[in-house]
Design a protein around this nucleic acid. Structure first.
Lengths: 148, 148
DNA sequence: CAACAATGGTTTGTGCACCAATTATCATAC
DNA sequence: GTATGATAATTGGTGCACAAACCATTGTTG
């Protein structure tokens, strides 16, 4: 009955639930992404590029909240499979501009089926997913604003 | 105004929010866990063990929803820093029982300060976190029950 | 009891994810 | 115009995470 036990109890840890939920939902995407040869993080990069390419590594890093050190090899893999081109900005040779190839642009129509397919497989009411999304957005803001 | 654009739009992807939120919240734990020499997944294993050690790899895998192949090296690291002991079950030499060392048990009192510290740093009302937790639990169930 | 399947862990390979250190380019200040 | 500092990306190191292959032990069945 101690609060301490309560607090440490595994299944009450929001953090644990977050980690498990994240992995579980990514697991639902996996078989859908596999035919296109994409992992989930790669898919997120493609989403960002479909919305507004070209993007620099810096911009992608900010958008996806991912370390440049994580993106660097990931982008090379996307280039290796032919979805993306990496080239230095001629205005500023420090920045690397990531653009879509024709193959990368074409992939979009195939990808458009994914979100609805995921929602269908989850079998949850859309309203609930939207509420979850709002809730997650608040947590992200809280975590990013946390001290230290 | 097409629904398709809407659906692919990055910031509406629950999955993206989940991944970012998970990483962001783990980032709040990081500085709190660092003094004890624990990573977040290692912390989750310790939580499980504090609740009910000994546990086999199989049981840990089920509790934490983690692959045995992920746990195997993680547990060796926990053993290397002296929080845990790994020994085969004499009844069934296939199963590996993970138990706490004295040092591992002592760590618990230090860890008990973490959850409240995280909540404080997040600065979110407890009620909202609990609602998020319920919502995440439903998503986890949905994802685990998803076809394929 | 000897083949056989099932079970529990480990290993290997690929790909994130983060951190710290490094490199190259650009911008400023002498 | 050369030192200085800032910025953008890459590299290297550690540690998840998952899949597939592998191995030892146990359980079962002919």
């Amino acid at each position: 009955m101690s609060d301490v036990t309560d607090v440490l109890s595994l299944d009450r840890q929001v953090c644990f639930a977050l980690a498990v939920a994240s992995r579980a939902v990514i697991g639902v995407y996996r078989p859908l992404l596999q035919p296109m040869g994409l992992t989930h993080p790669q898919y997120l990069v493609m989403l960002a590029l479909w919305e507004r390419a070209p993007l620099s590594v810096k911009e992608l890093s900010k958008l996806l909240q991912l370390d440049p050190g994580t993106l660097s090899p990931l982008l090379k893999r996307l280039e290796a499979i032919g979805y993306v081109r990496r080239q230095r900005d001629s205005q500023d040779e420090r920045v690397l501009l990531v653009t879509l190839t024709g193959k990368g642009r074409e992939l979009r129509s195939e990808a458009e089926r994914i979100p609805s397919s995921v929602v269908e497989r989850l079998g949850m009411p859309l309203e609930e997913l939207q509420e979850l999304h709002r809730s997650l957005t608040r947590v992200i803001a809280a975590a990013n604003g946390a001290p230290h």
